[in-house]
Amino acid sequence: MANGVVETTEKSREINFVKPVLGFEESRIYSFQEYKPGSPFMWMISAGDERLRFIVINVFDFFPGYDLKLSNDDRELLGFDEKSALVFGLVSIPENPEEMTVNLAAPVVVNYKKMAGGQFVNLIDGYSLKEPLVKRGEANADSVKENGRKDNNKR
C-alpha cells in the first residue's frame, strides 16, 4: 500500500465519498488537511459543513500489518487497488486524550487516483472499533499484534 504521505498539493483536495461515513450520510465530500506540521494526525473535514470534522490517522503508520478486505462491489466502486489506496482510521478522543482509540473495524479508504473514498466495514473479523492508540494503554499488548487484530476474536 502507499505510504500515506499526503502531499502539500493534495492536502486540500476534495474526496468524493462513494460510501458515506455511517450516521453522516448527507455529507459526501471531505477534504484531508494537516493537523499540525509533522503530526501523524490529520483532519478529515466535510466540505459542506466544516463543523463536521474528524481526526484521522494513516492506519499503516501505526499498524503496519493491518489487513483489509472489501467486498468485490466496494472494490469496484472505489477502484480499489493495494497500490493507490490509503486507509485512514477515525480517532475517538475522550476528555483524557491518553484514552484515545482508533476505529480499525470500519476504516475510511481513499483512492486518490479517482479522488474517491468512503467508510467501509472490514470484512476481516477481529479488528476493534476502539483500538487504543496511546503507548500507556498497552495493558492488553499480549493479545494485540502489530496488525491491530486480536487473536481471541479470530474465527
Partner: peptide, 11 residues
Amino acid sequence: KVQQENVKAMV
C-alpha cells in the same frame, strides 16, 4: 455500532 463510534469520533 459503527455509527455510534463515528458520532463519538466527531470533533
